[in-house]
Amino acid sequence: MSYFKELWDGIRTTAQGLRLTGGYLTKKGVYTIQYPEETLPIDKVTHRGIHEYDVDRCISCENCAKACPVDCIYIESAPDEKGKPSKGKAAIMTRFDIDYSKCLFCGLCVPPCPSECIQLGERYSLPGHTRDDMVVHFHEGGYPIQEKTEHAKSMIAEFRTENLYEKKRKERADRGIPTLRPAE
């Protein structure tokens, strides 16, 4: 007898489940999206994707490289008159590479930056065939920054009044370092 009871229990509970899933046939609402034609909305302020970086405002202080747990930021700047790597507002970056085969996207490099010229952006796709493809050379333009903070905006204004953008761009052109950033 218990055989039939168990059989009946199986049929009954399965029918309950089927009723539930069947109910979704008529319910409205989409839960899947067709990637890559459609993508999920991304929060522009908080999303931790590939970095955005402003090569002109960077003062080559290396705070970001020191804060990075995996040491995946490589920084070099052109020598100044004394032959030492240039620092401060006049710094000319000759190398600012981030190795994304190592990066954790943790965001620890963002808060220590005094000029707020590095932040995590909204891009997330960086396919490549070799390890070298994973290294992004930000000093060549890389991904320009989208300003998010008041402090950054005020710094830009300061840079403009001192005409530093023009100066740096000219100097970089003289040294043969390309810039992707369009002239303002």
Partner: peptide, 25 residues
Amino acid sequence: AGGHPGPHPAVGSHPTDGVTPGVKP
């Protein structure tokens, strides 16, 4: 010398690149 090296090879090599996230093309 001189020539513009162009963007990083990885930029623009993926179907989603250039697609603004969250917007249907």
